[in-house]
Each structure stands twice: as structure tokens, then as C-alpha cells.
Design a protein around this nucleic acid. Structure first.
Lengths: 235, 235
DNA sequence: ACCTGAACACCGTTCAAGT
DNA sequence: ACCTGAACACCGTTCAAGT
């Protein structure tokens, strides 16, 4: 019974001690090289030349790992704002950037949807969004809710795109043919509209449209609140 | 070597032959009893008293299984509409129902987010939504996009709720404490707003607010288009 | 032709035992 | 005290072989 020779211990000069930062670096390397869906506790441990159990000393579970990873990615986001750019345009840009960031790696957006990113870079993003919405004359409560809605949309869009564009996803034609199966008697409105309307425009254009809808809708909500501004006696 | 006696063959009278419908029934039973996250090919096969390989004769993969299952659940949705109910109110009700349906079982919403439901009941839902939006004077293109946006919001909300409320999710307090960690120098807007604004109001109220934002935003978009109505020469 | 046992290639998490 | 080998309890999917 020949045991495989233990992988040479001298290759890396004294395998560095584990640490949150080191684990995160290795995680990024895996995501970059193999995609976020290949980031597993076992692979991560293997990359760090240890057993999976060791990771649990530094990271509570997979959910926490994902939350940390997302924040780590957020550092790449451009969050500067000089007033030469109109707030609405800046809003579009940062949300596009955010969506792109999450789309780059399959699985990252998925994680972001069900995970509150945990870290300072996420707070940076929230701060900028709030600032921009304030600049559009939204009150604090409305702005906070709008931030929620805008980020939810950006994240969900990224998750959808990543899911549909990769591996064993459904084909776009599946949706088409489902829609074409609309029975004019049972689905008159749908049949009259035609399946084409659901895929009209480019992804970028649709996305920009959605962001404007969200902003305008929030603005309307803030306006309705305006009359009661001085002191809110009703409601 | 004592083989375990084969589980009695006479318990169920002549194990019924497999079929798409039978598989789906068994899937619903599992989801109902153990939650959608426990629905796996292997468990499903076990429930049908066969090996997992057999399922692949009727279902392409897990993604297709989920798509079929979601449509199967959609049958419970109330899609009637008599004009005694204002279109906006009806819109709220059907979207609430849809969110509830997906929230009931962890994992169902997750699947819906990355999977186009496949079947006639989904078309029924689309038809009603389109009809209601037309009634609010939206043109077909705007209505179709609004449908997308409304369903995306409903699905994402359900996924978030299901994820955060169950099993090994992050605590709500995690978000609170992340927000409270806002450094007044680095995150002035956030710190001034306070962490409370991000969790103001009940879930139902926040949800209703979001739906109104989406509807109003879409209405604005449709209005802007109105001037060019007769024939669209520009753009 | 239709079905499936068994195998392949993985997972996350825990805990007793080692240093 | 800190770390981890090995085990526990699972996954989805394929394919050669059986009826």
C-alpha cells in the first residue's frame, strides 16, 4: 500500500497561518478563476492546503462567507460624485456598475439576493445612494425605501441575467414558446399583445427604463407627502 | 450477509407507473410536508419508490422540475376580476397573493427568481396583469415592462423574506448592527438618517408602497409617451 | 424500448482526537 | 488552546446493464 507522498511542504515557504483576510483572498482567487458557483468550503480549504473544518474557525458558515465576499467585491465600485453629473445620471451609473459587478460571476448575485452584504463598502454604497436621492428632493424615509427598491431591482436583474446566461439554464426560446402557446380564448390580452412585447428593447435600455420608473414613482410618493410637510397631523 | 428484505411490494397496490403528473403530485407532497428546500431528485425518487435515474425520463433536470412545480402552485391563485374592484386595488391583491404563495415554502421563491415558470397558469397570471394595466391606460409596451417589474419585485420580496425568516439565515440584528456601524465621517448621510429608516413600517405596508411606486412610475412613463401618440416619428 | 442499480463526482457541517 | 482528519448525511446526473 503506497501512500501518495505528502505534497511537498517546501513549495510555499511555511504555509501562512489562516486568517479571515487570507481566506477571503483565496475565495476571490477561486471566483475569479472558476466562477462563484465553484466557490465551496471544500475547494476553498483545498486551495488553502487544509481541511474544510479549519475554515469554520474563521467563518460561521457559507452564508457569512458570501456576505463577506460580496462586500469585498464592492471595493471596486466607483462611488465618487462631483456635481458636474446630474443626480439621476449618477444614480443610473452606480446601479449599472453594481449590476455588472454582480453579473460578472454567476452565483454572486444569487448570494446577494438572500444575503445582506456585511461590511464597510456596502455602507459606502448606501451612503452615496441616499445622498443622490436627497438631492432629488426625497425625504429621508422615502429615500431609504427607494434605496431598498433600487438595490433589490439591481440585484434581481443580475441574478436573472447570470442564471439565464449560463450553464444549464432554460433557453430564451423556452420563454418565447411558452408565451406563443397563449390561447387567444383563454389569454386574449396576452395573445393580442403578442409575445414580442415582453422582450422588446435591449437589456441596457430596459434596465435604464426600470430605474427611471422607480425614481419617478418614488418622487410621486414624496410629492404626495409634501402638503402635510410642516407637521404630519393625519395618518 | 443478510440482505434487508425488499420493502413489501404489496403495500401500495401495484406501484403506479411513473408519469409527469404523478411525479409532480409527489413533489407537491414533499414540499407541503418538508419544505421546498427538501425537494431533491433523490427524495422525490424515494417517495416514488424508485431510483433517481428514473425521473430523468420525465423531467430534464432540477430546473425544469422547479418550473413545473411553480406553475402547479399557481393554480391556487385567485385570478377573477369583476369591475367592482378598482384595477389598482386588484393589482395589489393579486401581487400580494403571489408573494404569499411563493413565501409559503422556502426555496420556491428562490427557484422562481431564476426560472421562468412553465405552464398555462403562469400565462393566466400574465393575462390578468396585462388587463389590469391596460385598464390603467398603459400602452402595451409599457404594460408588458411593468408586468416584468411587478413580478420581479414580488418574487424577489418573497425570496428575501423566505431566506431571512428561516433556517440558518442572518439575524435581523446583523443588518441593524451593520448599519449602526456607520461612521459619521465616512457615511454622513447614512448616519444622519439613522438605521431605523431602513426598517420603517410593516412588511405589508412597505410592500404596498413599493407596488404603488412601480405603478406610478410606469404611469409617468406612459404619459411622457402620450404626446407622440398619433404616429411615433421621433425616437 | 423502456427503465434503473450503481457509480461518479461532488456538497456543508460537526466532533472527537490530536498537537 | 488551537486546529483538523475523518465521518455523517447528504446532493445532481450519467451510463452500462438489465428486463
Amino acid at each position: 500500500m503506497v501512500r501518495p507522498e505528502p505534497v511537498s511542504r517546501r513549495d510555499r515557504p511555511a504555509k501562512p497561518p489562516l486568517s479571515r483576510a487570507g481566506i477571503l483572498d483565496a475565495a476571490v482567487a477561486i471566483v475569479e478563476k472558476e466562477g462563484a458557483d465553484k466557490l465551496t468550503m471544500r475547494r476553498l480549504a483545498a486551495a488553502l492546503d487544509t481541511g474544510p473544518a479549519s475554515l469554520y474557525v474563521y467563518v460561521k458558515n457559507t452564508t457569512e462567507l458570501n456576505a463577506l465576499l460580496i462586500d469585498r467585491y464592492l471595493v471596486d465600485l466607483d462611488l465618487s460624485w462631483d456635481d458636474s453629473e446630474l443626480p439621476r445620471a449618477r444614480l443610473h451609473r452606480v446601479l449599472d456598475d453594481y449590476t455588472h459587478l454582480l453579473t460578472r460571476q454567476t452565483g454572486l448575485a444569487q448570494a446577494a439576493l438572500v444575503t445582506w452584504p456585511n461590511g464597510v463598502h456596502y455602507l459606502d454604497l448606501l451612503d452615496l445612494l441616499l445622498r443622490l436621492l436627497h438631492d432629488l428632493e426625497l425625504d429621508t424615509t422615502t429615500a431609504a425605501r427607494a434605496v431598498d427598491l433600487l438595490l433589490q431591482h439591481a440585484t434581481a436583474s443580475a441574478a436573472e441575467r447570470a442564471a439565464h446566461s449560463s450553464n444549464d439554464a432554460q433557453e430564451l426560446s423556452d420563454l418565447q414558446s411558452t408565451l406563443d402557446a397563449a390561447d387567444p380564448d383563454r389569454h386574449p390580452t396576452l395573445a393580442r399583445a403578442g409575445s414580442a412585447v415582453f422582450v422588446s428593447g435591449s437589456r441596457e435600455e430596459r434596465n435604464a427604463w426600470s430605474i427611471d420608473v422607480l425614481i419617478d414613482g418614488a418622487l410621486k410618493q414624496a410629492t404626495q407627502r409634501r402638503p402635510t410637510e410642516g407637521r404630519s397631523h393625519s395618518e
